[in-house]
Design a protein around this nucleic acid. Structure first.
Lengths: 340, 340
DNA sequence: ATGAAAGCGCTAACAG
DNA sequence: CTGTTAGCGCTTTCAT
């Protein structure tokens, strides 16, 4: 592998000149620039990342604290990770994966290796130990999600309030008067996991603004839980005609419970799945009306935001709230005037 | 951040002694070892990854060439990535993500940065340019999947033949005589993408061994393609009673096409989805009989295999073939003796 | 069993 | 505009 000194020799310049030519850190006469690049080309030279990082104290590596599989998700995270990787690579960074389930001790140990320049944090909770740690250490970071107090903190999050609002509004316009919200697990809510906590809060507020009764349920993320929760729900509220759900894995159970009652979707019951994706929508027939998660965009933005704070001399605090995108498909319809 | 010289000073030993104590690269008296570790503890010292890598020429970073979203990608890949990350971290390595869609020029450029010690390659094709490149450069690598010629190459792959065999055998035992295979896209087959190519070949061979007619279809990975392909298929073969499918995203369309004919699953038609997962199985009611992909295991094994070849002085070539695990659920039943 | 010192391949003062 | 050189924080030979 050729090194910088080889390039310098071949170009007939000092080693540092090659470095400056590559990094553009100081002005260089066009002529020597040409010669240096020609020499690099000829030798197939690529700077050694480790040496560069050690000398400059910038590794050009960022870490992604990404979720282990457990909660309801899948596609959306994958999309997120794909786009984050792509964005990082495009900007000349490498993305390493760290588990979001890591405790603060493990996290601190990894950070102290000084391998990464910054961290993108997924699965953020309202009060997040990891965020506290990153702040304390002084490691640059950006959140996918947000905490309770976000002063001076970069984040990219879904606009859950607008997402819930749009869904409820759409159902209300279809004539539905009793709308239920089916959230993820109560445990996630108690842990104040952002998406679960925010959507719950927003739904309560929004239904009250609409003058509606607030009906909601927590539900673990699997088919059986969806079935049972939905059974219980319809037993308690026989006049329910619509639902907003944020629990992809419970969907088949929910649909089954509705079908078992002899009701049809969307004629007798409408359902919108929020923070979802086209792929989930198409897994079911009729295709689901969903509010699609802006995962790809967030992956890109999160990384870009982190990198700008690493590279700009005085970075601005970026706090982006991106709404989900409502896509109307086959699982929603005007309220059936015939009562069930 | 404390450095090694600080530890050495505090412990009253030479800098190199600290290094040897940490790496165990040469014997050290128990007493000094104690002192060194006490000093490290006290200072909260962690070796700098970049410096260590530069000096030792081993970064303890490996790259994962992982797929962009396009093919059937989803849960299984996510599981794979999660476990690979976990395994790497456990063994003291960091995993960086590189896109599997990268061409050989980009790949070469990244490799020449000498950031990574080895590469785990996903989405392997029978004749894979990237594999050729890695060999040529002399970069250690392991495949998730395999090529046509695997002499001396480490790989971890699914045992597609056994997977197809088990599925066909199970259906045959249920009395089904005409069984179709629904594969992924013809394009993937023409590109000789491992899973698509191998399952196709195996299915042809196995049905012929069973004395069955070989009926198969390629199908793009979306609901509509599934619907149309299934329509055409049932038009051509009205006496078909069972199917093996390796195309998760086409499933809803397939089911719809069956239902549209007035047939019920599994009474009138049985279906097994291979190289799938419990999560997919549960997305549909009745829950699908699937042959689950050993993604987690492969993620772990792939990484372990790569790391052993990086660390052992004379590594053995590891070539693992892992079968999918048939889980019988609600989409398969004995052949209905009443013809359709 | 331990120490001294020469790099690893770069970046970034410092000097002209 | 360019060259010289002192590190970055480790590993690893070479001594002792």
């Amino acid at each position: 592998m050729p090194k910088m000194s080889d390039v310098a020799k071949k170009a007939g310049v000092a080693l540092s000149t090659v470095s400056y030519a590559i990094n553009g850190t100081r002005s260089i006469s066009e002529e020597t620039r040409q010669r240096v690049f020609a020499a690099m080309e000829e030798l197939g030279f690529k700077p050694n990342a480790l040496a560069r990082g050690l000398a400059s104290k910038r590794s050009h590596i960022i870490a992604l604290l990404f979720p282990v599989i457990e909660r309801g998700l899948g596609f959306t995270e994958m999309e997120f990770v794909t786009n984050a990787t792509e964005a990082a690579l495009t900007l000349g960074y490498n993305l390493v994966l760290w588990s979001s389930a890591m405790d603060t001790v493990e996290l601190r140990a990894l950070i102290q290796q000084e391998l990464v320049d910054g961290v993108v944090v997924m699965e953020v909770h309202r009060h997040d130990e990891r965020v506290k740690l990153l702040k304390e250490i002084g490691m640059p970071f950006t959140l996918i999600g947000r905490c309770d107090n976000n002063d001076g903190i970069n984040f990219t999050d879904i606009d859950f309030h607008k997402t819930v609002f749009d869904a409820v509004k759409y159902l209300a316009e279809l004539g539905h008067e009793k709308i239920c919200f089916l959230n993820q697990s109560e445990q996630a809510y108690n842990e104040e996991y952002g998406p679960v906590w925010r959507t719950q809060t927003s739904f309560e507020q929004i239904t009250s603004e609409f003058g509606m009764q607030t009906i909601s349920r927590f539900c673990r993320s699997n088919t059986m839980a969806g079935y049972e929760t939905m059974q219980e729900l319809l037993d308690s509220h026989a006049d329910l005609t619509a639902m907003v759900a944020m629990n992809e894995r419970a969907i088949p159970g929910i649909i089954q419970a509705i079908t078992d009652r002899g009701w049809r979707i969307p004629d007798d019951f409408s359902i919108i799945v929020i923070v979802s994706s086209e792929r989930i929508a198409e897994m079911v027939i009729p295709n689901l009306t969903t509010s699609d998660s802006p995962s790809s965009e967030m992956g890109r933005l999160g990384v870009q935001s982190l990198i700008q704070m690493l590279e700009k001399e005085n970075p601005v605090v970026q706090q982006e709230l991106i709404p989900c995108h409502l896509v109307i498909r086959g699982s929603t319809a005007p309220k059936n005037i015939l009562v069930h």
